[in-house]
Design a protein around this nucleic acid. Structure first.
Lengths: 243, 243
DNA sequence: CGCACACTTGAGTCGGCTCAACCCTCGTGG
DNA sequence: CCACGAGGGTTGAGCCGACTCAAGTGTGCG
């Protein structure tokens, strides 16, 4: 574990060279890296640097210049936008294997904060951009991924426009379940690394409404609230509620 | 004006070879085409076919195989998603210069319907994809555009999560104004090619609430409702209301 | 004229928000 | 060991704004 210059609040960030290397990386086949040959992977690896963030640490901040792009190899991240008047909206949550900054923007449009201990594969944006320019099929892959994100954003808009707190919460749980499944996590118990306030800000509800709705679903034995998550007891019913 | 096979409802669609050619195209410099040299433009032009849609005509439908991508050269389009239960949500509106299908999806995730007489530059998806594969900087440009779209989607999510009908409507008008400005249309009068129901479905409101809100803004002399649009009378106030 | 369609306006209801209190867990320190 | 406080979560009472339902007003068109 080296000790280089780090994020403003030094406590929330440690650096280190990749250990097993990309070849053994657990997100090797679920992330954009899957588009690369082992040669290219080696090249990518030389650009990468593992960074660990403590919970509540900031990966990057809205409007700040985008100096790097990130691939999450461990932990969960919340992505949010702040309004001038102080209100906030949680655009989404990034999980293991998710790529942050795939639009390769000049400036970040969102803030990313660690929800748990988070490990990311960090690439200098400039270097990464150069690599992309030389590897069209990597760009292709990034673009596909961006299309997927766009689809998620559309789903989310639909959800927000759709009224009904129950519908929103049920749909949120199912979506999260689907995303976990996509990366090979199919436990009956759904981890909720984010707090109630985050869920509320994500769904356009208040924390009280989220809490009440979850409690009601629990009372009706659709879900079971457990520490750190929920157990999905009655999936058909949940799907019926969520659309 | 040739007469080839056409959309299912023949009345809403006519084909024709580009007239002035891409070089004289009015969206030449505001669309993705701006990334191309004149040589490439010629190549692109050979793939293109102008198609005219009557109002209410369908350009393409959600879930259907994406056989082509489109560049709008005239008119406005509404983009919507249908839910199994019949509810609909208007994801957004595409204006002159907008590119449809830039994620190059296998299947369309949305339905596109003409709001007015619409002319598009239509490219077979396969051929277009081949061209993109040969021209990395065109892909680059598409990807940038996708990033821009993602930003718009985030703005829209923020808007939907934010309560307050007035805030939503004001923000919608300002956003539309900004988009018109971006393509060189800076009239005081804002064209609203979409109906009240479309605005409502876009903002997660009901048609009555949209109507009432516009009426109130009119009464308070912030806007003036005119046939086919609104005149923005008190921009500072509107900006204050919309954030 | 009469119909269709888009939009407006009004009255009453209801779901989620606001405000406020309370509960529980966990870490800290006497 | 318990007291304490902080933070996250839950629960309750009342209110308010957007929805629902319903009727009315245009405007264009055959």
């Amino acid at each position: 574990m080296s000790s280089e210059t780090c994020a403003p609040d030094g406590r929330s960030c440690r650096h280190g060279r990749s250990e097993g290397g990309c070849a053994e990386c657990k997100v090797r086949f679920i992330s954009v890296c899957a588009a690369l040959t082992s040669d290219e992977l080696a090249e990518l690896e030389s650009l990468s640097r593992h960074v660990v963030h403590d919970p509540r640490g900031t990966l990057f901040t809205q409007d700040e210049e985008a100096s790097a792009v990130y691939n999450i190899t461990e932990g969960s991240v919340r992505l949010l936008r702040l309004l001038p008047d102080g209100r906030r909206h949680v655009m989404g949550f990034a999980l293991v294997g998710d790529f942050l900054g795939l639009a390769l923007p000049e400036r970040h449009t969102i803030t990313a904060e660690a929800l748990s201990p988070v490990t990311v594969c960090r690439f200098e944006r400039r270097a990464f951009q150069d690599l992309v320019a030389r590897k069209p099929h990597l760009l292709q892959r990034l673009h596909e991924r961006a299309g997927y994100e766009l689809g998620l954003a559309q789903d989310q808009m639909l959800l927000l426009g759709r009224r009904g707190a129950e519908e929103k919460v049920a749909s949120f749980l199912l979506t999260l379940r689907g995303r976990y499944a996509r990366i090979g996590l199919t436990s009956v118990t759904l981890e909720l690394p984010m707090g109630r306030q985050d869920i509320a800000d994500h769904l356009g509800l208040t924390i009280e409404t989220v809490s009440r709705t979850l409690t009601r679903l629990d009372r009706e034995k659709v879900i079971l609230i457990v520490p750190g998550g929920v157990r999905l007891l009655d999936l058909p019913r949940l799907e019926h509620l969520g659309g």
